[in-house]
């Protein structure tokens, strides 16, 4: 089990915007089926890190390797641009904080889901629609809305559609940036429950960026705490939250309001 090779291996990753070091010297491994939470306050470099990991921002330094189905561990930035885009549309999913960035707002809900399927070669209209329906049901969407464009949907519905769009190709690794940000708490609870179920059912690996420690506790096996672009503490989720060692983690945990 220990000898198992990781799904994702990150080595000394840093990224600078001009003279601003947004994330610095991050190294870790993610194994199949693991959910890693990245927590920290805004500006700590979480999203920059996620963008670098998900092949959407070339890091200034360091290596991101992914276990490609046909080639094994491969530096993702050694892939060609089309290969990276293909990876993002098939074996990976990216759930953005703002559904506007992850959906095509003026094509139908069914079309949003079907588009990903066509990227992996599905051509039969009936089958594509059938699979799209199946997924819309999985994320608890009203099938009566399948032909409506997401620009007319509520925020919670848009977010669920984004999840369906990403998971329909059965990715092995999903990146999520504040997936429940900006939603009402009741809508958030429903989405969290859904995500939690899907991650387990599909044995997904995921990297979830969030500033919400309760979300992290519910979804993540393991946490990485970031401050000023650096990882200051890592460990099992409940260990980091219940017995934090680094001064910043202790501050973060003690700052959460009790309900």
């Amino acid at each position: 089990m220990n000898a198992m090779s990781p799904l994702l291996r990150v080595h000394n990753l840093s990224h600078a915007f001009g003279s601003l070091l947004a994330c610095s010297d991050v190294s870790f491994e993610l194994h199949s089926g693991e959910v890693l939470g990245v927590v920290g306050e805004s500006g700590s470099g979480k999203t920059t890190l996620l963008n670098c990991l998900s092949a959407r921002l070339v890091p200034t330094n360091g290596i991101v390797e992914y276990d490609l189905r046909d080639r094994g561990l491969t530096d993702i930035y050694s892939l060609s641009e089309p290969e990276r885009r293909f990876l993002l549309r098939t074996d990976w999913g990216v759930v953005m904080q703002n559904p506007r960035d992850g959906l095509r707002m003026s094509i139908s809900a069914g079309g949003n889901v079907g588009e990903r399927l066509m990227a992996v070669g599905a051509r039969h209209y009936g089958e594509i629609r059938g699979t799209a329906e199946e997924w819309l049901e999985k994320v608890e969407m009203d099938l009566g809305r399948i032909d409506d464009a997401p620009k007319h949907f509520s925020g919670g519905m848009q977010q669920r559609l984004q999840i369906a769009r990403n998971l329909v190709t059965k990715p092995r690794l999903v990146f999520m940036d504040e997936p429940t940000g900006g939603l009402d708490v009741s809508v958030q609870a429903r989405l969290l429950d859904l995500l939690r179920g899907l991650v387990r059912e599909l044995k997904l690996s995921a990297i979830i960026v969030t500033h919400d420690l309760a979300v992290a506790r519910l979804l993540a096996d393991r946490l990485m705490v970031m401050k000023d672009g650096k990882v200051v503490e890592t460990g099992l989720t409940d260990q980091v939250l219940d017995d934090p060692h680094h001064p910043y983690t202790q501050l973060l945990v003690s700052s959460v309001l009790q309900v």
Binding site: M1, N2, H31, E34, D221, R222, G235, L236
Partner: peptide
């Protein structure tokens, strides 16, 4: 033990 080991 590493986290995935503890979880197992």
């Amino acid at each position: 033990a590493a986290p995935h080991r503890v979880l197992a």
